[in-house]
Amino acid sequence: MKRLFLYIIACLLLCGAARLSAQSQAAYYCLPCNNACDTIAFDAPGECPHCHMELIRQVVEERKRLQNDRLKIAFYLQDGVEVLDFAGPMEVFDYAGFDIFTVSKTRGPVTSQGVLKIMPDYTLDNAPAADILAFFGGNAGAASNDPAVINWVKRQANIRHYFSVCTGAFILGKAALLDSLTVTTFHKSIASLQEAVPTAKVLSGVRFVDNGKVITTAGISAGIDGALHLVAKIRGKAVAEKVAAYMEYDKWAPDAGLVTVP
């Protein structure tokens, strides 16, 4: 009887070890690039032969979880939006495997800086739910002073993060999302944002400020820093570093921002 009991215990331990081993198996994958190679597992480090991204080591189950947890990011674009404000973070989030879609007030094309024509994916009336809402500078006053836009922002539910670049912070401020927070914006708009949101503490000299749910960044290139920070926060620092390296963005300074809430 005792032998049988020990045999059963041994079998249970072996089964548990085998299950744990299977769950902890690792392989090498490219950074998520929204192509078919996202699902290919390689057995050695190197470069993906399809997208040419560097392969990173990930536990198989974790990779599957990330593929099933593709956060949706809504980029709100107003007419006159600064192209680098949104294009830099868009590239960061895309390489990190997030699903990005654009939203504007109307279905017609948005003109960025009087040059680039952009056809939004959705309008305020038919935009799907998002996990992250992102706002950008360049004629941001047109959006922050538009009740239809602000009411749309306020209606969004279950948002995990709000993200702004440059004067996109004014849109968050008008929606009462910056009240009593420490934030930042374009260096020439610090005083104006402080006046618009008197309960906030508006900082200069920082690339981004992370309040946990709300992340605001300074102008243009600082949006890339803030986006990389958010990727590191969600996907891990190793993924953010690989994204920065792939983009040849060698100016990323992770400590150049302020994190008030982890």
Rank of each mutant, 00 (worst) to 15 (best):
L193G: 12
L55G: 04
W252A: 08
E91Q: 15
I159C: 01
L172Y: 11
F170N: 02
L4E: 10
E62A: 10
V153F: 11
A140F: 01
A22W: 11
K64P: 07
I8C: 13
R65A: 13
G137T: 05
Q156H: 06
H187V: 06
I224D: 02
A176T: 06
A36D: 05
Q23V: 12
S24V: 02
E91K: 13
G141M: 08
D146R: 03
A222P: 01
E195K: 15
V243F: 04
K64I: 08
S204Y: 08
R235K: 15
T102P: 01
G205H: 12
R160D: 07
C48F: 05
A140P: 09
V149E: 04
K154Q: 15
I9R: 12
F136G: 04
T39C: 02
K233I: 07
I215S: 09
M247Q: 10
V103W: 12
V214G: 10
F163I: 05
V149H: 03
C37Q: 03
F135P: 09
P49F: 02
R3I: 14
K174Y: 01
A142R: 14
G137P: 02
A245V: 00
Q25Y: 09
R3A: 14
K105Y: 06
R19M: 12
T167Q: 06
S221I: 11
F208L: 02
Q156V: 06
D85E: 08
